[in-house]
Design a binder for these strands. Structure first.
Lengths: 346, 346
DNA sequence: ATTTAGCACTCTCAATGTGAGAGTGCTAAA
DNA sequence: TTTAGCACTCTCACATTGAGAGTGCTAAAT
């Protein structure tokens, strides 16, 4: 593979830039009109031939303009795009919105999904922060009716889970509170193994409750991603390449179907570092359903403690620069929020 | 308007049935082939002329088969469809799934959305049960770090809300527990007015907490619909009438955009009785974005206490019978679950 | 060696034309 | 009131055509 000259790299970048905007094949003449380069169209044509031979461009048909190939986009993302940041006032607006959302994780997630969808004009997903090693924090036992008891468990990372428990025989609220206090005293900050090692020190009621706590803990571990928040799915349908809904349908199904999404996430973001942003272009040969689109994926949270994933789905012809910086910025924000919350919980 | 003969009503029903399956205009010949009626195609043609004049059928163009008009569907839904029930084993399967989901409201919602989408082959939405008159049930105060306190509030209807509170000065966990107990003792089962009438009996810390409780209560009242669960959005994209994604996009946006959805729900289901199922055909002249599709909407919950909405979006050419019975069945199930949960909470 | 102007060539897309076929409405008989 | 027969209408799929955009190549210019 020949290395590209500086001008060829420029031309590639400009073609991608133009194509992202217009969704039309880009011709040599269109380029010089758009950007007033100091070369003629013939020169550009020569370079385009080489870029085509290098595999970065292709012609939809003989003598149409050029369109970037997947390889072309990859080269662009890796070598040409550079690091951009969102404009200052955009960042301020977003930060402000998160600030207004208070301490509500649920609202953070919805907001993050909304911001991603809006900024990237694509479909977005955000998974709720999941404890990588869930540690127990607090338990409330609330008598409801007869032998029915509502358990409310609080875990590190701000996760609150509820569970219903049916006792063998009625127990007073005082007894329940005592039991909860006992458990809180001994179990705070422990993980599953820690709790298991403590058995023997509890009475029958407490044993029952502990069993449920351990089960809940197991359940939290198994799920690759907790709640999934989505937004902007209809943005994708507005793109001209998805006018024939078949490929749009396939792509959106990946976001909609939990099993597909878990497969995708577990094989990409969840194996990467916290600040990496991954760009999947055209399914990368692995995800057939994503053939005609791209995804930008990131990860947020506190490494080793609580993490979640976030991402954007759009056409291959996507404004990668903007999308990547949005993902980077939002994931940073979410990380800060989550870490702050963890610190407060101690 | 002439009243239809029995045979004309039969023909209308058969045409709708056929068209729902095939998505192709239905001709007189196709009808007799499909159903072996004891009349000739000519007779059917005569009847079809009358049905067309009555406004229930139309021809996409001269000498094509007939297609039901929106009025045709309305007549069908009101007069011809009758009450059907889901097959016994389907009902059993669904019930079983809900049984397995335990007491997790979150999981109920996801499951309901999934079942609706799957059964109707359309896009579904379910809103979480919202207290019509929220009553306070239980409070836990958990010291996290220094002056930071995590409030976990439990409300009638199984709603659990969390909130962060920053105190003026550090307070021990014991003091917090005492305060929480005081509040629990005095406020259980009260609504906003009841809590407001109790002020004066609390110390400064408790006053602060009560203020947040009242605020939360206000917030819960304002939201028309709490969390919205969606599923099967991509089912809609598979329908041939939505191959050109423009109208699909408009319709799905109604489900996606909170403001549109709230407008829709507040003007339909939320004003209806608990067991009514409403069928909106072609936007009913009110919702432009729903021009090419239909919605079947229902409501579940305990009247006056906790309610939520559920619905299905599909093409106008929808299997209304099946969809209506699914909505009816699922809403009944959810109502039972919610009522049961309320009873347990007392 | 690289760039440029000129030009013939290729291929798509939109517009137009055509024929087969499906389904009708009408008429007259049953 | 129903039915058979038939001429008629309109769409859809397919083929044909011309304009236009954009190319690649060649030969001249820098």
């Amino acid at each position: 593979m020949t290395t590209l000259t500086e001008r060829q790299r420029l031309i590639l970048a400009l073609i991608i830039h133009t194509y992202v905007e217009t969704a039309q094949p880009v011709g040599s003449k269109a380029l010089i009109e758009r950007y007033t380069l100091d070369t003629s169209s013939a020169t550009i044509r020569n370079d385009m031939v080489e870029l085509t031979e290098a595999g970065y461009l292709r012609q939809p048909y003989t003598s149409a303009g050029r369109v970037p190939t997947e390889e072309g986009y990859r080269y662009f993302v890796r070598q040409l795009m550079g690091q951009t940041e969102l404009p200052m006032n955009t960042r301020r607006t977003i930060t402000h919105q998160f600030y207004q959302a208070g301490r509500d994780v649920n609202r953070w997630m919805r907001l993050a999904a909304s911001v991603l969808a809006h900024q990237s004009q694509g479909a977005s997903l955000v998974t709720s922060p999941r404890p990588e090693s869930a540690r127990f924090k607090h338990l409330s036992l609330i008598s409801t009716h007869g032998r029915q008891v509502l358990m409310v468990m609080v875990w590190t990372g701000g996760q609150v889970r509820q569970q219903m428990l049916t006792l063998a025989e009625p127990v007073s609220q005082e007894q329940l509170s005592t039991a909860a206090n006992n458990i809180n005293m001994l179990c705070e900050g422990l993980d599953a193994d820690g709790i298991a090692s403590l058995s023997g020190q509890f009475d029958a009621l407490e044993q029952d409750v502990l069993k449920l706590i351990r089960e809940e803990q197991e359940r939290m571990k198994q799920v690759v991603s907790g709640e999934v928040y989505r937004d902007g799915l209809t943005n994708v349908l507005a793109e001209p390449e998805f006018a024939e809904s078949e490929s749009a349908r396939k792509a959106l199904r990946v976001l909609e179907e939990r099993s597909m999404l878990e497969d995708l996430l577990s094989r990409t973001v969840l194996t990467s570092g916290m600040d990496d942003v991954q760009v999947l272009i055209g399914g990368e040969g692995t995800w057939e359903d994503l053939r005609d689109c791209s995804m930008v994926l990131g990860r947020y949270g506190a490494p080793g403690l609580v993490t979640g994933a976030l991402g954007v789905l759009g056409p291959t012809r996507m404004a990668y620069g903007r999308t990547v910086s949005t993902i980077r910025f939002v994931s940073g924000l979410l990380s800060d929020l989550v870490i702050e919350m963890l610190a407060e919980e101690n």
